[in-house]
Design a protein around this nucleic acid. Structure first.
Lengths: 233, 233
DNA sequence: AAGTGGTCTAGACCACTTG
DNA sequence: AAGTGGTCTAGACCACTTG
Protein backbone atom coordinates (compact mmCIF):
# COMPACT_ATOMS: atom_id res chain seq x y z
CA UNK A 1 0.00 0.00 0.00
CA UNK A 2 1.28 3.41 -0.85
CA UNK A 3 1.32 6.30 1.56
CA UNK A 4 0.32 9.84 0.80
CA UNK A 5 3.36 12.04 0.31
CA UNK A 6 2.39 14.41 3.10
CA UNK A 7 2.23 11.47 5.48
CA UNK A 8 5.72 10.41 4.48
CA UNK A 9 6.97 13.89 5.22
CA UNK A 10 5.12 13.92 8.55
CA UNK A 11 6.57 10.51 9.42
CA UNK A 12 10.04 11.80 8.63
CA UNK A 13 9.62 14.77 10.95
CA UNK A 14 8.05 12.61 13.64
CA UNK A 15 10.93 10.15 13.45
CA UNK A 16 13.53 12.90 13.74
CA UNK A 17 11.79 14.01 16.91
CA UNK A 18 11.31 10.50 18.25
CA UNK A 19 14.95 9.65 17.58
CA UNK A 20 15.86 12.82 19.46
CA UNK A 21 17.72 14.20 16.49
CA UNK A 22 15.47 17.22 16.69
CA UNK A 23 15.02 18.30 20.28
CA UNK A 24 12.67 20.66 22.02
CA UNK A 25 12.98 24.15 20.60
CA UNK A 26 14.72 22.94 17.43
CA UNK A 27 13.82 24.89 14.33
CA UNK A 28 12.77 22.41 11.70
CA UNK A 29 13.42 22.96 7.98
CA UNK A 30 11.19 25.57 6.44
CA UNK A 31 8.24 24.52 4.33
CA UNK A 32 10.22 25.36 1.19
CA UNK A 33 13.16 23.23 2.30
CA UNK A 34 10.89 20.32 3.15
CA UNK A 35 9.17 20.52 -0.19
CA UNK A 36 12.52 20.47 -2.01
CA UNK A 37 13.78 17.61 0.16
CA UNK A 38 10.80 15.46 -0.77
CA UNK A 39 10.22 16.76 -4.31
CA UNK A 40 6.81 17.96 -3.26
CA UNK A 41 4.99 21.23 -3.62
CA UNK A 42 5.05 23.61 -0.70
CA UNK A 43 1.35 22.92 -0.04
CA UNK A 44 2.10 19.26 0.48
CA UNK A 45 4.99 19.94 2.85
CA UNK A 46 2.75 22.39 4.64
CA UNK A 47 0.06 19.76 5.04
CA UNK A 48 2.55 17.50 6.80
CA UNK A 49 3.51 20.30 9.17
CA UNK A 50 -0.18 21.09 9.74
CA UNK A 51 -0.72 17.52 10.87
CA UNK A 52 2.04 17.70 13.46
CA UNK A 53 1.04 21.14 14.65
CA UNK A 54 -2.39 19.69 15.35
CA UNK A 55 -0.77 16.84 17.24
CA UNK A 56 1.01 19.48 19.30
CA UNK A 57 4.40 18.16 18.23
CA UNK A 58 5.32 21.36 16.43
CA UNK A 59 4.59 25.01 16.89
CA UNK A 60 4.63 27.64 14.17
CA UNK A 61 6.07 31.12 14.62
CA UNK A 62 5.18 33.20 11.57
CA UNK A 63 8.09 34.93 9.88
CA UNK A 64 10.47 32.98 12.08
CA UNK A 65 10.02 29.27 11.60
CA UNK A 66 8.49 26.10 12.95
CA UNK A 67 9.78 24.59 16.17
CA UNK A 68 9.71 21.31 18.04
CA UNK A 69 7.45 21.41 21.07
CA UNK A 70 8.45 19.94 24.41
CA UNK A 71 7.98 16.15 24.41
CA UNK A 72 5.62 14.30 26.67
CA UNK A 73 2.63 12.14 26.41
CA UNK A 74 -0.51 14.17 26.53
CA UNK A 75 -4.12 13.42 27.00
CA UNK A 76 -7.24 15.42 26.72
CA UNK A 77 -9.52 15.13 29.66
CA UNK A 78 -12.46 15.93 27.53
CA UNK A 79 -12.21 12.91 25.42
CA UNK A 80 -13.14 9.63 26.88
CA UNK A 81 -10.21 7.90 25.39
CA UNK A 82 -8.48 4.82 26.59
CA UNK A 83 -4.76 4.64 27.00
CA UNK A 84 -4.39 2.18 24.13
CA UNK A 85 -5.91 4.48 21.51
CA UNK A 86 -3.86 7.32 22.85
CA UNK A 87 -0.64 5.37 22.44
CA UNK A 88 -1.56 4.00 19.02
CA UNK A 89 -2.33 7.52 17.86
CA UNK A 90 1.16 8.53 18.79
CA UNK A 91 2.41 5.75 16.56
CA UNK A 92 3.84 3.82 19.49
CA UNK A 93 3.46 0.22 20.55
CA UNK A 94 1.03 -0.67 23.31
CA UNK A 95 1.28 -3.75 25.48
CA UNK A 96 -0.50 -4.92 28.58
CA UNK A 97 0.57 -7.13 31.44
CA UNK A 98 -2.16 -8.54 33.67
CA UNK A 99 -0.85 -8.37 37.23
CA UNK A 100 -3.89 -9.74 38.98
CA UNK A 101 -7.49 -10.81 38.60
CA UNK A 102 -9.84 -11.55 41.43
CA UNK A 103 -13.36 -11.57 42.77
CA UNK A 104 -13.98 -9.89 46.09
CA UNK A 105 -16.39 -8.22 48.44
CA UNK A 106 -15.87 -4.50 47.92
CA UNK A 107 -14.61 -2.21 50.62
CA UNK A 108 -16.80 0.73 51.60
CA UNK A 109 -15.37 3.18 49.10
CA UNK A 110 -15.67 0.85 46.12
CA UNK A 111 -19.11 -0.37 47.17
CA UNK A 112 -20.27 3.21 47.45
CA UNK A 113 -18.92 4.29 44.08
CA UNK A 114 -20.33 1.25 42.28
CA UNK A 115 -23.52 1.05 44.33
CA UNK A 116 -22.44 -2.54 44.86
CA UNK A 117 -23.69 -3.14 48.37
CA UNK A 118 -25.28 -6.50 47.68
CA UNK A 119 -22.95 -7.94 45.11
CA UNK A 120 -19.36 -8.97 44.65
CA UNK A 121 -17.00 -7.01 42.44
CA UNK A 122 -14.23 -8.06 40.10
CA UNK A 123 -10.84 -6.47 40.42
CA UNK A 124 -8.10 -6.43 37.81
CA UNK A 125 -4.70 -4.81 37.88
CA UNK A 126 -3.07 -4.20 34.52
CA UNK A 127 0.19 -2.54 33.60
CA UNK A 128 0.14 -0.64 30.30
CA UNK A 129 3.39 -0.20 28.40
CA UNK A 130 4.16 2.37 25.74
CA UNK A 131 7.15 1.27 23.68
CA UNK A 132 7.91 -1.16 26.50
CA UNK A 133 7.97 1.62 29.09
CA UNK A 134 5.36 1.60 31.88
CA UNK A 135 2.90 4.41 31.30
CA UNK A 136 -0.19 3.46 33.30
CA UNK A 137 -1.08 1.14 36.14
CA UNK A 138 -4.78 0.39 35.95
CA UNK A 139 -6.59 -0.83 39.03
CA UNK A 140 -10.17 -1.49 38.06
CA UNK A 141 -13.27 -2.60 39.90
CA UNK A 142 -16.33 -3.81 38.07
CA UNK A 143 -19.79 -4.68 39.30
CA UNK A 144 -19.90 -8.47 39.02
CA UNK A 145 -23.65 -8.61 38.70
CA UNK A 146 -23.77 -6.20 35.77
CA UNK A 147 -20.78 -7.55 33.87
CA UNK A 148 -20.72 -11.25 34.79
CA UNK A 149 -18.19 -12.37 32.15
CA UNK A 150 -15.65 -9.65 32.84
CA UNK A 151 -12.94 -11.79 34.40
CA UNK A 152 -12.99 -14.30 31.57
CA UNK A 153 -11.66 -11.80 29.03
CA UNK A 154 -8.08 -11.89 27.85
CA UNK A 155 -6.89 -8.52 29.05
CA UNK A 156 -3.53 -8.88 27.42
CA UNK A 157 -5.33 -8.40 24.12
CA UNK A 158 -8.51 -6.46 24.74
CA UNK A 159 -8.48 -3.49 27.08
CA UNK A 160 -10.97 -3.33 29.90
CA UNK A 161 -12.39 -0.17 28.30
CA UNK A 162 -12.90 -1.91 24.99
CA UNK A 163 -14.68 -4.81 26.60
CA UNK A 164 -16.83 -2.61 28.81
CA UNK A 165 -17.70 -0.41 25.87
CA UNK A 166 -18.96 -3.49 24.04
CA UNK A 167 -21.17 -4.83 26.78
CA UNK A 168 -22.22 -1.65 28.56
CA UNK A 169 -21.83 1.44 26.38
CA UNK A 170 -20.60 4.40 28.35
CA UNK A 171 -23.04 7.22 28.89
CA UNK A 172 -21.12 9.39 31.31
CA UNK A 173 -18.18 9.50 33.64
CA UNK A 174 -16.91 11.18 36.75
CA UNK A 175 -13.25 12.04 36.84
CA UNK A 176 -10.92 13.15 39.59
CA UNK A 177 -7.29 14.07 39.19
CA UNK A 178 -4.81 14.08 42.02
CA UNK A 179 -1.10 14.20 42.58
CA UNK A 180 0.39 11.62 44.90
CA UNK A 181 3.71 10.45 46.20
CA UNK A 182 3.90 6.91 44.83
CA UNK A 183 3.80 3.95 47.19
CA UNK A 184 6.60 1.40 47.06
CA UNK A 185 4.60 -0.96 44.89
CA UNK A 186 3.67 1.83 42.47
CA UNK A 187 7.28 2.91 42.26
CA UNK A 188 8.22 -0.63 41.42
CA UNK A 189 5.64 -1.19 38.70
CA UNK A 190 5.98 2.21 37.09
CA UNK A 191 9.76 2.18 37.55
CA UNK A 192 9.75 5.50 39.35
CA UNK A 193 12.68 7.05 41.14
CA UNK A 194 12.43 9.01 44.36
CA UNK A 195 12.10 12.33 42.58
CA UNK A 196 9.08 11.49 40.51
CA UNK A 197 5.53 12.11 41.54
CA UNK A 198 2.54 10.19 40.33
CA UNK A 199 -0.65 11.37 38.71
CA UNK A 200 -3.73 9.52 39.91
CA UNK A 201 -6.92 9.64 37.94
CA UNK A 202 -10.02 8.14 39.45
CA UNK A 203 -12.73 7.48 36.94
CA UNK A 204 -16.18 6.11 37.55
CA UNK A 205 -18.03 5.22 34.38
CA UNK A 206 -21.76 4.94 34.00
CA UNK A 207 -23.94 3.15 31.52
CA UNK A 208 -27.35 4.76 31.48
CA UNK A 209 -26.64 6.35 34.84
CA UNK A 210 -25.81 3.04 36.46
CA UNK A 211 -22.22 2.94 37.74
CA UNK A 212 -20.45 0.09 36.00
CA UNK A 213 -16.79 0.46 36.71
CA UNK A 214 -14.35 2.29 38.95
CA UNK A 215 -10.79 2.73 37.79
CA UNK A 216 -7.77 4.07 39.57
CA UNK A 217 -5.26 5.02 36.91
CA UNK A 218 -1.70 5.79 37.99
CA UNK A 219 0.77 7.53 35.70
CA UNK A 220 4.45 8.41 36.02
CA UNK A 221 4.41 12.19 36.29
CA UNK A 222 7.49 12.60 34.15
CA UNK A 223 5.87 10.80 31.25
CA UNK A 224 2.27 11.81 31.38
CA UNK A 225 0.10 14.85 31.79
CA UNK A 226 -3.47 15.81 31.09
CA UNK A 227 -4.28 18.63 28.73
CA UNK A 228 -7.44 20.33 27.76
CA UNK A 229 -8.54 23.14 25.52
CA UNK A 230 -11.46 25.17 26.57
CA UNK A 231 -13.30 28.05 25.06
CA UNK A 232 -15.87 30.51 26.22
CA UNK A 233 -19.02 30.35 24.02
CA UNK B 1 -9.76 43.39 10.61
CA UNK B 2 -10.26 41.17 7.63
CA UNK B 3 -10.80 37.45 7.95
CA UNK B 4 -9.28 34.73 5.86
CA UNK B 5 -11.77 33.36 3.38
CA UNK B 6 -11.58 29.84 4.76
CA UNK B 7 -12.48 31.19 8.18
CA UNK B 8 -15.52 32.91 6.75
CA UNK B 9 -16.65 29.66 5.20
CA UNK B 10 -16.01 27.81 8.47
CA UNK B 11 -17.96 30.47 10.38
CA UNK B 12 -20.86 30.05 7.98
CA UNK B 13 -20.96 26.31 8.51
CA UNK B 14 -20.56 26.69 12.26
CA UNK B 15 -23.42 29.15 12.41
CA UNK B 16 -25.71 26.85 10.43
CA UNK B 17 -25.00 24.16 13.01
CA UNK B 18 -25.33 26.49 15.98
CA UNK B 19 -28.60 27.88 14.68
CA UNK B 20 -29.78 24.28 14.33
CA UNK B 21 -30.44 24.73 10.64
CA UNK B 22 -28.13 21.82 10.03
CA UNK B 23 -28.75 19.06 12.53
CA UNK B 24 -26.85 15.94 13.52
CA UNK B 25 -26.41 13.70 10.50
CA UNK B 26 -27.12 16.49 8.00
CA UNK B 27 -25.09 16.26 4.82
CA UNK B 28 -23.46 19.62 4.27
CA UNK B 29 -22.79 21.06 0.80
CA UNK B 30 -19.95 19.35 -1.02
CA UNK B 31 -16.56 21.04 -1.23
CA UNK B 32 -17.32 22.03 -4.83
CA UNK B 33 -20.64 23.59 -3.85
CA UNK B 34 -19.06 25.48 -0.96
CA UNK B 35 -16.31 26.81 -3.19
CA UNK B 36 -18.89 28.05 -5.72
CA UNK B 37 -21.03 29.56 -2.97
CA UNK B 38 -18.12 31.60 -1.67
CA UNK B 39 -16.29 32.16 -4.95
CA UNK B 40 -13.30 30.32 -3.56
CA UNK B 41 -11.17 27.53 -4.88
CA UNK B 42 -11.97 24.03 -3.74
CA UNK B 43 -8.78 23.95 -1.65
CA UNK B 44 -9.99 26.93 0.35
CA UNK B 45 -13.43 25.44 0.96
CA UNK B 46 -11.69 22.23 1.91
CA UNK B 47 -9.54 24.06 4.42
CA UNK B 48 -12.68 25.36 6.13
CA UNK B 49 -14.10 21.86 6.32
CA UNK B 50 -10.75 20.56 7.62
CA UNK B 51 -10.94 23.04 10.47
CA UNK B 52 -14.37 21.86 11.55
CA UNK B 53 -13.49 18.20 11.13
CA UNK B 54 -10.64 18.83 13.55
CA UNK B 55 -13.04 20.49 15.95
CA UNK B 56 -15.11 17.35 15.72
CA UNK B 57 -18.10 19.27 14.39
CA UNK B 58 -18.09 17.51 11.04
CA UNK B 59 -17.23 14.06 9.79
CA UNK B 60 -16.11 13.14 6.29
CA UNK B 61 -17.29 10.08 4.42
CA UNK B 62 -15.23 9.70 1.25
CA UNK B 63 -17.25 9.34 -1.94
CA UNK B 64 -20.40 10.14 0.00
CA UNK B 65 -20.17 13.53 1.63
CA UNK B 66 -19.49 15.43 4.83
CA UNK B 67 -21.90 15.24 7.75
CA UNK B 68 -22.73 17.08 10.96
CA UNK B 69 -21.51 15.24 14.05
CA UNK B 70 -23.50 14.74 17.25
CA UNK B 71 -22.85 17.44 19.89
CA UNK B 72 -19.71 16.88 21.91
CA UNK B 73 -19.03 15.67 25.41
CA UNK B 74 -18.56 18.48 27.87
CA UNK B 75 -16.71 18.81 31.09
CA UNK B 76 -16.95 21.04 34.07
CA UNK B 77 -13.20 21.24 34.11
CA UNK B 78 -14.02 23.67 31.39
CA UNK B 79 -15.31 26.18 33.79
CA UNK B 80 -12.85 28.91 34.13
CA UNK B 81 -13.03 29.45 37.78
CA UNK B 82 -10.51 31.29 39.82
CA UNK B 83 -9.34 30.09 43.16
CA UNK B 84 -10.96 33.00 44.99
CA UNK B 85 -14.48 32.21 43.75
CA UNK B 86 -13.92 28.57 44.52
CA UNK B 87 -12.96 29.35 48.10
CA UNK B 88 -15.76 31.87 48.61
CA UNK B 89 -18.23 29.28 47.31
CA UNK B 90 -17.06 26.93 50.03
CA UNK B 91 -17.84 29.66 52.53
CA UNK B 92 -14.20 30.03 53.51
CA UNK B 93 -11.99 33.08 53.78
CA UNK B 94 -9.63 33.94 50.96
CA UNK B 95 -6.44 35.97 51.33
CA UNK B 96 -3.53 36.71 49.11
CA UNK B 97 0.10 37.48 49.80
CA UNK B 98 2.15 39.02 47.01
CA UNK B 99 5.56 37.36 47.14
CA UNK B 100 7.13 39.09 44.16
CA UNK B 101 6.50 41.41 41.25
CA UNK B 102 8.95 42.03 38.45
CA UNK B 103 9.53 42.87 34.83
CA UNK B 104 11.79 40.58 32.86
CA UNK B 105 12.85 39.24 29.50
CA UNK B 106 11.01 35.93 29.14
CA UNK B 107 12.84 32.64 28.91
CA UNK B 108 12.24 30.47 25.83
CA UNK B 109 9.30 28.58 27.25
CA UNK B 110 7.42 31.64 28.43
CA UNK B 111 8.21 33.54 25.24
CA UNK B 112 6.78 30.66 23.21
CA UNK B 113 3.60 30.35 25.18
CA UNK B 114 2.93 34.06 25.19
CA UNK B 115 4.30 34.66 21.69
CA UNK B 116 6.34 37.33 23.45
CA UNK B 117 9.50 37.25 21.41
CA UNK B 118 9.89 40.98 21.14
CA UNK B 119 8.53 42.23 24.39
CA UNK B 120 9.17 42.04 28.10
CA UNK B 121 6.84 40.18 30.40
CA UNK B 122 5.62 40.86 33.90
CA UNK B 123 5.91 38.18 36.52
CA UNK B 124 4.04 37.98 39.79
CA UNK B 125 4.10 35.33 42.46
CA UNK B 126 1.13 35.23 44.80
CA UNK B 127 0.27 32.88 47.62
CA UNK B 128 -3.44 32.19 48.08
CA UNK B 129 -4.71 31.21 51.49
CA UNK B 130 -7.95 29.44 52.33
CA UNK B 131 -8.85 29.99 55.99
CA UNK B 132 -5.22 31.07 56.47
CA UNK B 133 -3.89 27.80 55.04
CA UNK B 134 -1.85 27.91 51.81
CA UNK B 135 -3.89 26.44 48.97
CA UNK B 136 -2.32 27.77 45.80
CA UNK B 137 0.95 29.32 44.73
CA UNK B 138 0.35 31.34 41.61
CA UNK B 139 3.28 32.15 39.36
CA UNK B 140 1.97 34.26 36.53
CA UNK B 141 3.52 35.75 33.42
CA UNK B 142 1.76 38.45 31.46
CA UNK B 143 2.62 40.05 28.13
CA UNK B 144 3.80 43.52 29.13
CA UNK B 145 2.90 45.06 25.81
CA UNK B 146 -0.69 43.84 25.91
CA UNK B 147 -1.37 44.57 29.57
CA UNK B 148 0.89 47.55 30.34
CA UNK B 149 -0.61 48.44 33.73
CA UNK B 150 -0.58 44.95 35.15
CA UNK B 151 2.13 45.43 37.75
CA UNK B 152 0.50 48.52 39.20
CA UNK B 153 -2.50 46.62 40.50
CA UNK B 154 -2.89 45.77 44.16
CA UNK B 155 -2.88 42.01 44.04
CA UNK B 156 -3.63 41.62 47.68
CA UNK B 157 -7.13 42.84 46.89
CA UNK B 158 -7.88 42.05 43.26
CA UNK B 159 -6.87 38.69 41.82
CA UNK B 160 -4.83 38.57 38.64
CA UNK B 161 -7.73 36.74 36.98
CA UNK B 162 -10.18 39.45 37.92
CA UNK B 163 -7.94 42.18 36.58
CA UNK B 164 -7.14 40.33 33.38
CA UNK B 165 -10.79 39.56 32.82
CA UNK B 166 -11.51 43.28 33.02
CA UNK B 167 -8.91 44.45 30.57
CA UNK B 168 -8.69 41.48 28.20
CA UNK B 169 -11.77 39.28 28.32
CA UNK B 170 -10.91 35.63 28.11
CA UNK B 171 -11.94 33.83 24.95
CA UNK B 172 -10.26 30.49 25.48
CA UNK B 173 -7.64 28.69 27.47
CA UNK B 174 -5.23 25.80 27.31
CA UNK B 175 -4.86 23.74 30.43
CA UNK B 176 -2.33 21.14 31.47
CA UNK B 177 -2.37 19.14 34.67
CA UNK B 178 0.71 17.46 36.07
CA UNK B 179 1.92 15.88 39.26
CA UNK B 180 5.27 16.98 40.62
CA UNK B 181 7.52 16.49 43.58
CA UNK B 182 7.62 19.95 45.14
CA UNK B 183 10.84 21.93 45.16
CA UNK B 184 12.21 23.24 48.43
CA UNK B 185 10.73 26.66 47.90
CA UNK B 186 7.33 25.22 47.04
CA UNK B 187 7.41 23.04 50.12
CA UNK B 188 8.15 26.10 52.16
CA UNK B 189 5.40 28.29 50.76
CA UNK B 190 2.73 25.61 50.66
CA UNK B 191 3.87 24.17 53.99
CA UNK B 192 4.25 20.70 52.56
CA UNK B 193 5.86 17.77 54.29
CA UNK B 194 8.02 15.18 52.56
CA UNK B 195 5.13 12.85 51.89
CA UNK B 196 3.00 15.24 49.94
CA UNK B 197 3.06 15.67 46.21
CA UNK B 198 2.06 18.76 44.36
CA UNK B 199 -0.47 19.32 41.63
CA UNK B 200 0.71 21.70 38.95
CA UNK B 201 -1.76 23.30 36.59
CA UNK B 202 -0.41 25.29 33.68
CA UNK B 203 -2.93 27.55 32.10
CA UNK B 204 -2.47 29.78 29.09
CA UNK B 205 -5.32 32.16 28.55
CA UNK B 206 -6.21 33.83 25.31
CA UNK B 207 -8.15 36.92 24.47
CA UNK B 208 -9.38 36.70 20.91
CA UNK B 209 -6.82 34.02 20.17
CA UNK B 210 -3.94 36.16 21.37
CA UNK B 211 -2.13 34.61 24.33
CA UNK B 212 -2.33 37.05 27.22
CA UNK B 213 -1.18 35.26 30.29
CA UNK B 214 0.59 32.11 31.40
CA UNK B 215 0.00 30.83 34.89
CA UNK B 216 1.68 28.05 36.81
CA UNK B 217 -0.62 27.11 39.66
CA UNK B 218 0.75 24.86 42.39
CA UNK B 219 -1.51 23.09 44.87
CA UNK B 220 -0.82 20.91 47.89
CA UNK B 221 -1.96 17.47 46.75
CA UNK B 222 -3.46 16.65 50.12
CA UNK B 223 -5.77 19.65 49.98
CA UNK B 224 -6.70 19.99 46.37
CA UNK B 225 -7.84 17.90 43.43
CA UNK B 226 -9.55 18.47 40.13
CA UNK B 227 -12.88 16.91 39.40
CA UNK B 228 -14.97 16.75 36.31
CA UNK B 229 -18.19 15.27 35.06
CA UNK B 230 -18.47 14.33 31.47
CA UNK B 231 -21.21 12.86 29.43
CA UNK B 232 -21.52 11.43 25.99
CA UNK B 233 -24.11 13.54 24.12
C1' DA C 1 16.62 42.04 0.44
C1' DA C 2 15.92 37.46 1.65
C1' DG C 3 13.40 34.23 4.42
C1' DT C 4 9.35 32.78 6.95
C1' DG C 5 4.70 31.13 7.57
C1' DG C 6 -0.50 32.40 6.02
C1' DT C 7 -3.51 32.37 2.41
C1' DC C 8 -5.26 31.42 -2.14
C1' DT C 9 -5.89 29.84 -7.05
C1' DA C 10 -7.19 26.85 -10.96
C1' DG C 11 -6.37 23.29 -12.37
C1' DA C 12 -5.32 17.75 -12.12
C1' DC C 13 -5.87 12.55 -11.30
C1' DC C 14 -7.37 9.07 -7.96
C1' DA C 15 -10.58 5.49 -5.68
C1' DC C 16 -14.83 4.87 -4.40
C1' DT C 17 -20.07 4.81 -3.98
C1' DT C 18 -24.41 5.84 -6.29
C1' DG C 19 -28.14 6.04 -9.74
C1' DA D 1 -21.55 8.52 -15.80
C1' DA D 2 -21.70 11.84 -12.35
C1' DG D 3 -20.54 13.07 -7.72
C1' DT D 4 -17.72 12.71 -3.58
C1' DG D 5 -13.74 13.42 -0.72
C1' DG D 6 -8.18 12.56 -0.88
C1' DT D 7 -4.15 14.09 -2.74
C1' DC D 8 -1.09 17.00 -5.34
C1' DT D 9 1.01 20.73 -8.29
C1' DA D 10 3.28 25.14 -9.47
C1' DG D 11 2.60 28.96 -9.11
C1' DA D 12 1.05 33.71 -6.51
C1' DC D 13 0.81 37.74 -3.12
C1' DC D 14 0.79 39.00 1.79
C1' DA D 15 2.70 40.66 6.45
C1' DC D 16 6.19 40.21 9.19
C1' DT D 17 11.01 39.58 11.27
C1' DT D 18 15.93 39.44 10.32
C1' DG D 19 20.55 40.61 8.69
Amino acid sequence: MSQAKYKLIADYIRSQINKRKWLEGFKIPSEMELSELFCASRMTARKAVDLLVHEDLLKRAPSIGTFVNPPRAQSSLLEIKNIKDEIIERGHSHDMVVLSKMTLTPNTKVAFELSAFETKVFKIVILHLENDIPIQLEERYVNAELIPNFLEQDFSHITSSEYLMEVAPLSNAKVMIEAIIPSKILKHHLKLDDNTACLKITRTTFSENVPVSLGYLYYPADKYRVTSQLSVN
